[in-house]
């Protein structure tokens, strides 16, 4: 399995082949970049991938992968996937609603600029401080919790709501998921030409018919692609989860964090497998995203 180490991705593999055709001097210009990427992006990732299929003494094995299929690790993956999916789907729907309201809903034009700027800020406001903001809002003594209890008599705790839970984390993630959706989908909505709507209308179509037969199919790849991106975005989020829940919620990034810190699984190579599983899942989501975006761009040329 040692030979696997040389099979790094396309960009570097083509290098020796191309060198013979173009001037080697040209390659000198991209050498620093190639070295950097190899050392600090590709090799570390390969280390994880290879490690996932190795025993501590370096021989090939599938035991690590098999080791993932224990109830507690599967549960961690499952809840991670559920949270990521829920926050991605809700983020898509709500973000689409907000963006559609501004682009198509006939709201004043000046709202656009501030909304997009604000989305830029909010989508980057993740991690530890975001967790604090939500604790201060929906935590046990958060402003909204207290307001609902004292003013409306609604006790969130009694209703079963807990910020350190599936729904709590989902709500928190939505804070950056919705604006990310707004940022990505607004250009797509702008891309819906007025003439398409008019052409459909003059051909006899009603509003819903236009949406069902034209607008929605055109947007569909973008929507699904953004969903994949939001999913990956939530799946890899570590800081928000740790700052919000400590280690009380058993999701994959927190499990991996604890494993790196103190080998809680008691098997270093099981950690590799855990990380490898994360790459596989975000990899699938992103491949979907790239593929679907290419499709929608082909249409909108």
């Amino acid at each position: 399995m040692q030979s696997d180490k040389t099979s790094v991705p396309a960009a570097t593999v083509t290098m020796p082949v191309r060198t013979r055709r173009t001037l080697p001097l040209n390659w000198l210009g991209v050498l620093p970049f190639a070295i950097f990427v190899t050392l600090f992006l590709i090799m570390p990732t390969m280390k994880i991938v290879v490690g996932a299929f190795q025993t501590p003494d370096g021989s090939l094995t599938l035991d690590n992968i098999r080791g993932l299929f224990t109830p507690s690790i599967m549960a961690a993956y499952w809840i991670s996937i559920k949270i990521s999916l829920a926050s991605a789907i809700l983020g898509c729907i709500i973000g689409f609603g907000v963006s559609a309201a501004v682009v198509l809903g006939g709201l004043p034009q000046w709202i656009r600029g501030p909304l997009l700027t604000f989305s830029g800020v909010a989508s980057n406001f993740a991690g530890v401080p975001l967790a604090f903001a939500f604790l201060a809002t929906l935590g046990p003594v958060g402003i909204l919790t207290v307001f609902l209890k004292t003013q409306l008599g609604l006790d969130l705790r009694l209703l079963g709501f807990n910020l350190l839970s599936f729904w709590g984390l989902t709500l928190t993630y939505l804070f950056f998921q919705i604006p990310l959706m707004v940022l990505i989908i607004t250009p797509a909505l702008d891309g819906l030409k007025r003439e398409w709507r008019e052409a459909a209308e003059i051909l006899g179509a009603s509003g819903p018919q236009y949406w069902r037969m034209v607008a929605f199919p055109i947007l569909f790849p973008s929507l699904l692609g953004t969903l994949a991106l939001l999913f990956a975005n939530a799946f890899g989020a570590v800081a928000t989860a740790i700052a919000l829940t400590g280690s009380s919620l058993n999701i994959v990034p927190i499990l991996l964090f604890a494993q790196i810190r103190g080998d809680v699984l008691g098997d270093p190579h099981l950690g590799y497998a855990l990380a490898f599983g994360m790459i596989v899942i975000t990899g699938i989501a992103n491949t979907l995203y790239i593929w679907l975006r290419a499709r929608s761009e082909r249409w909108l040329k």
Partner: peptide, 11 residues
């Protein structure tokens, strides 16, 4: 109606 920019449904 026929539009200047064709306005065919791309999908």
């Amino acid at each position: 109606m026929v539009f200047q920019a064709y306005a065919l449904f791309p999908n």
